[in-house]
Design a protein around this nucleic acid. Structure first.
Lengths: 199, 199, 199, 199
DNA sequence: TATGAATGAGTATTCATTCAT
DNA sequence: TATGAATGAATACTCATTCAT
């Protein structure tokens, strides 16, 4: 405990321990769903005591919300990795689409967790609203695609949803049926999507 | 009350009550998620006593599983409504696709519930396996489409998932943003999908 | 329903049904103990509906108490069967002792039930008191034995208890170890007891 | 609190608390019978929270079984206190018989509890079987008595049961009629028994 | 009377949270 | 900070009793 803590009562930041807790939670949610996990299970899986959990998160709700927020942040970071708005539209789109796919594949637990949260009593409306804001760049990109006559002249949200939804379901299916996703199948899925949306 | 009751003085278990319970559960799950509902809330919403719940379902787990099973059944019934395998491929496909959309729209609570169940501790593996079997006819249809050179020569499951995934997400989005789904937007979404999968 | 019922509200007396209920209760208590039986189990075992049980007994407590009372009565009836106070002391004693043994053997369920009742919340103090009164004749017999110098000059209750206790335990042991009780072993046990109490 | 606690900051499960729980349970069973006690009553009587009960015993059944096991152990310990198999037969027998009597007198609650358990749904068959094994030394002693021609040539179990049964019933009677058991009456009862079994 | 579904108070058990160490 | 036992309100489930048929 340092002097700063006395003044500001900031939350402790043993980032390593927080990560342990987050990873434990993600794993358990994937295995048993949000409905089936308890604080002591999380503590157990994170190899700390229940009491310790409450040093880092003041309640279960806070823990879930903060994990959600962090998942969302890291997902957005990945979504726009290596994306330059200066690139031609088609290049940028493919870049982002593969980023989305990559995230779903490599962070499957996070995806499941975020899906589950959406209909849970833990996530507040504010948290949900924030999520919407973070996809703004993607929204912009689609608008640009329409402006450049590369995409069909349809409702932007419809295009957005159509582009993304196949990824979620395809990855889910692959994980549960334990089928590897090959580079070729990724291209196939992209082409299905692209043939759908292109002008 | 049926004629049998008059003769035999048997008070049959009230099928209507099962429906009350199911509807109450679906509503609550949509509102608060599977994680947040209690047996007494369900009983309250169904306007019966807690004890009565246990006359019809021996445990919370059984209740959730049976509701899941019934949702699946009714969804499959709707999926293949007015579908004739003798129709041309494109006609049959459109028929089923619109049935799927219709189900998601008109039975949104059921859809949300089924989605939630998938990662819950309530649904058993057997129940999940059955689900897979029930989509067989759709699988067959896609195979036929490929044989008739109407569809791209890709993995059947990939095509299947691609066809269906947009529906789920689009309806979800519409419900939560409280946008009506018009006949026109339905056609738009279908065309996005069709342009993607057609040979 | 007859005219008498209207006037007096007497309890119905389908003696056959009451017996069914009693037998079912005794069987269940032997199997699972007084702590483990429910009214619907009793009804089930008696092949009647739960509601019907309440036509014959207004509560669980009443049912248990009435069964207890009936067991006590029938036991006392058997205890003094063929016993004549005019017979010589030793003859009378042997008669009663063998009657006691016979009751424990042939009405084992009743014995277990009565034992269980003693420490249960169901049996009222009044019911217990009554039980004491019913062994009066036996008490008198022991007093006579002492007066006739046939028995040791000890506290009557001590003699009484000593005489009887071996029976209970020996029968219990035989039933649970599934050993038949032979005529010879009955005599052996009697002699053990007699050698103990005789003057 | 032991030295280990100071070093490791471990708060050990409180053995004393288990005893509190056991004593509370015994008292309640004596008062109301096994049929009439609830977990929250036990917790209340032991002055702990209901939840705490479940830290020490995972279910009511487990609690009852473990208490039964502990009662049996402590009873057997007392049965053979100051008993040496090298002593003359008659000395050893009297020693054990008085130990039995002492246990029944000083641990009346335990006796009542164990009696009640025998026909309850809580005690498993395995637990019952173990009980039989623990009286082996007593069985041996009776066999020796027969070999040394001190006892009647009768079935060992019959002798065993006869020796013991009077104790149970006599103590029960004394407690319920609130009569003190004097040293003299103890000797009287022993002599009744001894005159019965001696060769 | 007889039925057995319905009731809801009561009971066993769980679990988020606190607290003494 | 870290621990995990302790707490007690909340939850799943039971069961004596009632009641419409």
């Amino acid at each position: 405990m340092n002097i700063y803590s006395f003044i500001c009562h900031v939350k402790p930041r043993d980032e390593h321990k927080i990560d342990q807790i987050f990873q434990a939670t993600l794993l358990l949610v994937k295995q048993k769903g949000l409905a089936g996990i308890t604080m002591s299970e999380i503590a157990g899986a994170a190899k700390i005591a229940t009491g310790t959990l409450y040093i880092y998160f003041e309640s279960k709700e806070k823990l879930i919300n903060e994990l959600f927020t962090q998942c969302r942040k890291s997902s957005v970071d990945i979504y726009f990795k290596d994306y330059e708005s200066s690139q031609p539209f088609a290049v940028g789109l493919k870049r982002i689409w593969f980023n989305l796919l990559e995230f779903r594949m490599n962070h499957f637990k996070e995806s499941v967790f975020m899906d589950q949260c959406y209909h849970s009593p833990y996530i507040t409306e504010t948290t949900k609203d924030l999520t919407k804001k973070m996809i703004q760049p993607l929204y912009k990109l689609v608008e640009r695609g329409k402006a450049e006559k590369e995409l069909k002249e349809l409702d932007t949200f419809m295009l957005l949803i159509f582009m993304v939804s196949g990824i979620n379901e395809y990855v889910k299916h692959s994980v549960y049926s334990e089928k590897k996703i090959t580079k070729a199948s990724m291209e196939d899925l992209y082409n299905l999507m692209w043939d759908g949306i292109k002008a």
